[in-house]
């Protein structure tokens, strides 16, 4: 099936409707009739709402594709705010000439991921632009979730205090290197697979069993170093990190050595950093390790009183240095 997207399928006319019906509505199970806005009848709670655009190049990479990424990314943004993700919208900008079967593959994986994450894709939009006016396929997803008011403090970390501990659910850097490898500009193949995954299951089990979660943030562009620097600045406290305890898979370490990347700055799509009260850290670690998305979870650092706004890294060889914000991107278009 080599049918290609034509410019008319973005016209808003009959062909557009057919595309929406055949590709999107069918896969997402959207309620008929399709309207301009989705009406959300769930009420009785604070709503969390987020949006993100996805322009990853290439759109297919080991461990996922742009569609899976677009669902996981938005689900994770809601989940780390302490919310229970419920509804997503999905908007597609498609380049004229894009293979229909690729579009279907992307949309099918969105449907699978949405089902896994327990969210519904209930509204969307489709535009087709002339060849060369966008690169194959761009997707924007927005999402809402129900937020228990008792968890409102999690996104800002305002209850964090010195002595609290920092945890991560697994190894860093896999997504960035999987995408780089898939770009065909390395003269070798890599065994690295993206960590792209929805984390609301893991986060939900942690929050159900522990009241000591003080902050969560998913690690995307800029990696662990960026999130920790943002956190240190936000809470005006210091952070120390033990480099040796940050999980990094062997192939990622090897590639970083060869290519001159620091895994602490590389993008992830299925990693979350949590801050917990010190007494809860071990328990939260055990809960994470029992979840498929958290088997390599680790306690990686501490919140400290001094060196305010700064992240100090105790290097794996026993030295220490400041772990700064990255300047400029290590790799463009990885999500």
């Amino acid at each position: 099936m080599d049918e290609r997207i034509t410019i008319n399928q973005g016209s808003g006319g009959r062909l557009t409707h057919k595309l929406i019906e055949d590709v999107f509505s069918k896969n997402f199970g959207m309620p008929e009739p399709l309207t301009d806005s989705a009406i959300i009848k769930d009420t009785g709670g604070t709503l969390a709402f987020t949006t993100d655009s996805y322009v990853v190049d290439p759109i297919f990479f080991p461990g996922g594709n742009i569609g899976k990424l677009a669902v996981c990314g938005t689900v994770n943004d809601l989940a780390v705010s302490g919310a229970v993700p419920k509804y997503l919208s999905a908007a597609f900008i498609i380049e004229e000439g894009f293979l229909l079967r690729d579009l279907i593959t992307v949309v099918e994986s969105m449907a699978v991921e949405a089902q896994k994450a327990g969210v519904k894709i209930i509204t969307g939009d489709t535009k087709v632009v002339e060849k060369g006016k966008c690169d194959k396929l761009f997707i924007t997803t927005s999402g809402t979730g129900i937020l228990d008011p008792a968890r409102e403090h999690i996104s800002t970390g305002k209850e964090i205090k010195p002595g609290d501990r920092i945890l991560i659910n697994g190894s860093v850097g896999n997504h960035a290197l999987a995408v780089l490898g898939a770009r065909n500009n390395l003269s070798f193949t890599t065994p690295v697979v993206s960590d792209c995954a929805s984390l609301n299951g893991l986060i939900n089990s942690v929050m159900l069993k522990s009241n000591g979660i003080l902050f969560m943030r998913d690690l995307t562009r800029g990696g662990l170093a960026t999130v920790l620097n943002e956190l240190a600045g936000m809470i005006r406290l210091g952070i120390t990190v033990d480099e040796a305890s940050v999980p990094v898979d062997e192939p990622v370490r090897g590639l970083c050595e060869m290519l001159g990347f620091d895994p602490l700055y590389l993008a992830n799509e299925g990693k979350v950093v949590l801050v917990t009260e010190s007494g809860e850290a071990q328990k939260v670690l055990d809960i994470m390790r029992s979840d498929p998305s958290g088997q390599k979870a680790a306690i990686i650092g501490d919140i400290v009183q001094d060196k305010r706004n700064l992240v100090t890294l105790y290097t794996s060889v026993g030295g220490k240095r400041i772990l700064d914000m990255p300047s400029g991107s290590q790799l463009p278009r990885i999500c």
Partner: peptide, 9 residues
């Protein structure tokens, strides 16, 4: 030298 914090050692 900077990455591993050699100066601190």
């Amino acid at each position: 030298i900077h990455r591993f914090g050699i100066a601190s050692l």
